[in-house]
Computed example of a mutant assay.
Amino acid sequence: MEEKSVNKTNSNGYTFLFAIIMVLVVASILAFTATSLQPTQYENVRQEKMQSILNTIGVETDRAGAESLYNQYITETVALRADGSVDEGLDAFNVDLAKEIKRVDSEQIFPLYIANYEGEKYYIVPLRGNGLWNAIFGYISLQNDVNTIKGATFDHLGETPGLGAQITKAWFRESFAGKKIFNEAGMLEGVSVVKGGASTDHEVDAISGATITGDGVSDMISERLEHYLPYFEEQRDIKITE
């Protein structure tokens, strides 16, 4: 009887059963951990989004302090339709741009954030486009003339470290400050990332070795801003009221 018991525990069937049980236990633990962390992960994403929006107007904060400052300086969020009209039933902050850009233009929702900081009004536009390997995204803020860039933030999902990934660096982001999105004829020109040195109000210096990522940033800015033109046409002469 004792020999049979030993043989039973050393059998292939016993080994497989033990492995299955362990897999189920580990999978259950991982599933529980992932589920329990979801609220924290969601909150971190919210706060980081607020950080990025605030950074475009010069408000620096850590993640923990982002929501308080966001509520202080972001005075209005607007969900725009393609014709420039406002969809009052939508919360612009919760619009998922990654999903929206997969729709045809006429069906997209375009979020817009309006800030009042140090007595100035700013319009903050979310950006999303294509880099070399994956999506690039960020925010760009316009001064009250709806032409001069106050600031910009950029991020990516998979650009090359040391090359395209440098769109997140301060020197690159800060090069957009003061640039213009409209030319002298009043036409949208955006801001282009160019090799050989920026020479106009519509250009910034390229990142060496990251041409495709730079082109993606240029295209992303022009493509996204174009959708806001119907709304901006009504705002260009509005001044902030104290």
Rank of each mutant, 00 (worst) to 15 (best):
E189C: 09
T168R: 11
T9H: 13
S208Q: 07
Q47I: 00
I53S: 02
N12Q: 08
A19P: 05
T160I: 09
N71H: 07
N94G: 06
I207A: 08
D219K: 12
I238D: 10
R224Q: 07
I114V: 13
L30M: 06
K150Q: 09
Q143Y: 10
E67A: 07
Y14P: 07
D96W: 15
M220P: 00
N147Y: 08
I181V: 00
K179F: 00
I136N: 01
D91V: 13
P230N: 02
S175Q: 02
L37Q: 10
Y14W: 15
L17Q: 13
K102Y: 09
E3Q: 15
L97N: 14
W133T: 02
S222W: 12
R173P: 07
Q51D: 00
R128T: 13
D145W: 13
I21Y: 13
V86T: 03
K150M: 11
T168G: 10
M187Q: 10
I29E: 02
S5P: 09
Y231T: 03
I167W: 01
Q38E: 14
A82S: 07
Y139N: 06
D201F: 13
Q166A: 11
L142R: 02
E223K: 15
D155I: 00
I124N: 08
V86Y: 13
Y42G: 06
V25N: 07
G186H: 04
I29Y: 03
S141N: 06
E3M: 14
A82D: 03
Q166I: 03
Y42Q: 14
I29T: 06
A31T: 04
I29S: 08
I124W: 01
T33H: 13
S208I: 10
R173V: 11
E3I: 08
N134P: 06
D87N: 09
V146D: 12
F154L: 03
S36Y: 08
G89A: 07
Y14D: 14
I21E: 08
E67I: 04
G138K: 00
T168C: 15
G178D: 06
I74Q: 10
A66N: 12
A152Y: 04
D205Q: 15
V191C: 01
A34Q: 10
Y123E: 00
I136P: 02
E100N: 11
A66K: 08
G196F: 12
Q47T: 01
S5Q: 14
P161Y: 05
V26P: 05
P39W: 01
I221M: 12
I57E: 10
D145K: 00
A79T: 01
Y70V: 05
I181E: 03
D145L: 13
S28K: 14
N183L: 02
T77H: 05
Q72P: 08
G89W: 09
Y14R: 13
T168A: 12
Q235I: 14
S208L: 04
